Amino acid sequence: MPRTPTIALAYDFDGTLSPGSMQEHSFIPEIGEEKDAFWKRVNGEAARLGADNILIYMHEMVKAARREGKRFRLDDIRRHGADIGFFPGVADGWFERLRAHGAGQGVKVQHFIISSGLKEMIAASAIGPEFEAIFASEFKYDANDVPEWAASAVNYTNKTQFLFRINKGALDLSDHSEVNKYVPEDDRPVPFRNMIYIGDGDTDVPCMRTVKEQGGVSIAVHPAGDAVLAEKTAALKTDRRVQFTADADYCDGSPLDAYVKAAIDKMAAVERLRALEG
């Protein structure tokens, strides 16, 4: 039996599925700090040290919780993840609706996260179970579930590696041989022509460009009513980084919903044609 073609939707998280940064929903309020002050300190320290912003924000979360006497263990991080809010429609059927739409077109739709945010928070959020895999930054914990080191840090320069992992079905990060093994594109679990990437800004550009140039679809979203960010995503389309921009409205019948469904329809039609061609 021929395998059912798979279409992968890969998403950034902060600013794409959820407003702002995930730390701003409950962690930063809990430590009693303004979000601008927290990120100013992170960015300043990263600039001073010439360090990776992702590693610095992870360290600052640990330091800030300790300084303010707030418990910061794995279950606390998950608790903060459970408090994350989402753009309209995200937690109200978006993922299942697209899986059902794909099934009606004879394809399997899978969802993935590629984020600089914390994997533990994303997994514990209301939409955590929707994803085939979550590629994101995470801590290494001691025997008491206290963060003691960064286990992984995902930034804009290394995000694209996860597209290739999805492409080849090499979802186990400890397996380096599978992702580097040569496999003809048509024999890969998710050819790039069957990928849709949804992001919101500069840190997503490498992924947007990679997916678009390899035959897939890239989309930039912005909060509804935010003229500044709308102009920023419009520039991504002008610069040919993405094919489509839209409000971050994931409700049934929204422009974003219609465009993604149309992209799935087109990808499914191409797969049917290829099957007929033998």
Rank of each mutant, 00 (worst) to 15 (best):
M1G: 14
T4S: 03
I7E: 05
G15T: 06
L17W: 01
P19S: 08
G20W: 04
Q23R: 07
Q23V: 11
I28N: 00
I31P: 00
D36L: 02
F38I: 08
W39R: 02
E45A: 13
A47R: 08
D52V: 03
I54S: 02
I54G: 01
I54R: 01
E60M: 10
V62G: 00
V62F: 04
K63Y: 06
K70I: 15
K70Q: 12
L74F: 08
D75I: 00
R79M: 01
A82L: 01
F87G: 08
P88A: 11
G89H: 10
R97K: 11
R99K: 15
G102E: 07
G104L: 02
G104H: 04
G106N: 12
V107K: 02
K108W: 00
Q110V: 12
Q110S: 12
H111R: 13
F112E: 13
I114M: 07
S115C: 11
S116D: 14
L118I: 14
L118R: 08
L118Q: 11
M121F: 09
A126P: 05
A136Y: 03
F139K: 05
D142V: 08
N144G: 04
E148V: 15
A151E: 14
S152P: 00
V154Q: 04
K159A: 06
T160L: 01
F162K: 10
L163G: 07
R165V: 12
N167T: 03
S174C: 09
H176M: 15
S177D: 13
E185F: 04
M195E: 11
M195Q: 14
Y197M: 06
G199E: 08
G201Q: 06
D202E: 15
V205E: 11
M208H: 05
V211I: 12
I219C: 03
I219E: 01
I219W: 03
A227E: 15
A230K: 15
T233E: 09
T233G: 02
T238L: 09
V242D: 05
A248V: 07
S254Y: 08
L256K: 07
V260C: 10
D265K: 03
V270C: 06
R274Q: 14
A275D: 12
L276R: 11
G278S: 13
